[in-house]
């Protein structure tokens, strides 16, 4: 029982990341009809927003180290610490959560620039061409990051108070062995709140209503005198922000490096396909579902029956779904059935 609960929890945080990325991807596909292979790169850029912010906060100068009295010793000290003392230290410690504030405008700008600059010209072209051009764009973005930050993963630690594990088992009376890292718990909560706000935005505001109507029937909405294209541009920016935030918060779990986007891209496509192309709820559900499935498959009991299943389970599920039910688990009837 404990083991099962632990696996579900383990799957949830990975599932949270999958769900967030897939949500952005399917939002773009559902509205613009564009298959965006640069979406993984957006996730990576988000993670590097947190790296950049951390670097900005820790800009430092050399000061004299007063604790050493035998000779003149110097140490690096961040300006924030010099100016604000202990408060500065706390700010630096909290750099990852704070970089959300930094990442939102940056990712929005990147998203808008990408859509206006490149993607917009590919609405009418085939899916294959969209895949190719966004794949090229992903390579460019990835190489720019590699040039400016180097090829090695950069550690971005979470705030110190979240470094331990949460005694979940003790809280629910399930045994002391069920513990869970605090940061992953926070990631899960964060994922839920972002997903919740995206859905609220789409379902409760007028803007969201127009977007949903545009997803259903773009032409009619356009005929009613609404500039659908502009709204869709904003939706692309929104998708970039959602994906970027997923990357920001994931950076303490996986130190960002330049090719993390490509690693997540294939997975997120698989998630979108399983959930159903263009279905938002499907993407979220499939994200969590596949995350949990993957963590169950990596249990030793299951690995001893079918060796190596943990590496391929997600792809097997995807192949099965595409063959048996191509519109995905929650896809609308008639959308992308072939």
């Amino acid at each position: 029982m404990d083991a099962i609960l632990l696996q579900i929890l383990n799957g949830l945080d990975k599932g949270g990341a999958y769900a967030l990325i897939a949500l952005g991807l399917t939002l773009v596909f559902g509205t613009l009809g564009v298959v965006n292979f640069a979406h993984g790169a957006l996730f990576m850029l988000g993670a590097f927003c947190s790296v950049t912010f951390q670097k900005l906060l820790t800009i430092s100068k050399q000061v004299k180290d007063t604790s050493i009295t035998f000779f003149d010793a110097y140490k690096e000290m961040p300006y924030l610490e010099i100016w604000f003392g202990d408060y500065g230290k706390t700010i630096i410690d909290w750099s990852v959560p704070l970089s959300i504030l930094f990442a939102i405008p940056v990712m929005l700008l990147i998203g808008l620039a990408m859509e206006r600059g490149l993607i917009r010209h590919f609405y009418k072209r085939t899916h294959a061409e969209q895949i190719l051009v966004t794949f090229g764009l992903a390579i460019v973005l990835q190489e720019i990051i590699k040039l400016s930050f180097g090829a090695n993963p950069i550690p971005t630690p979470a705030p110190e108070i979240f470094s331990g594990t949460a005694p979940i088992g003790a809280l629910f009376g399930l045994g002391e062995s069920v513990v869970y890292p605090w940061w992953r718990l926070i990631y899960l909560g964060f994922a839920f709140s972002v997903i919740g706000s995206v859905f609220a935005f789409l379902n409760l505001t007028t803007f969201g209503m127009v977007v949903r109507a545009g997803m259903m029937d773009r032409e009619t909405v356009g005929l009613l005198g609404i500039n659908v294209e502009r709204r869709f541009t904003i939706v692309f920016g929104l998708a970039a922000v959602v994906t970027g935030l997923a990357g920001v918060m994931y950076s303490p779990i996986l130190p960002p490096d330049y090719h993390m986007g490509m690693d997540f891209l294939v997975l997120s496509f698989v998630v979108v396909v399983v959930g159903g192309m263009g279905s938002l709820g499907g993407a979220v559900a499939a994200g969590f579902l596949l995350g949990i499935l993957q963590s169950f498959a990596s249990m030793n009991e299951i690995k001893s029956i079918i060796p190596g299943i943990d590496q391929i389970i997600i792809y097997l599920v995807a192949v099965f779904i595409i063959l048996v039910r191509p519109r995905g688990l929650f896809g609308r009837e008639g959308v992308m059935e072939d």
């Binding site: 899916h127 895949i131 294939v266 698989v270 995807a318 595409i322 191509p326």
Partner: peptide, 13 residues
């Protein structure tokens, strides 16, 4: 399958 599903299937394999 054809189109994008074909691409994703080959990618998955």
């Amino acid at each position: 399958r054809s189109g994008i599903y074909f691409s994703i299937l080959t990618l998955a394999f």
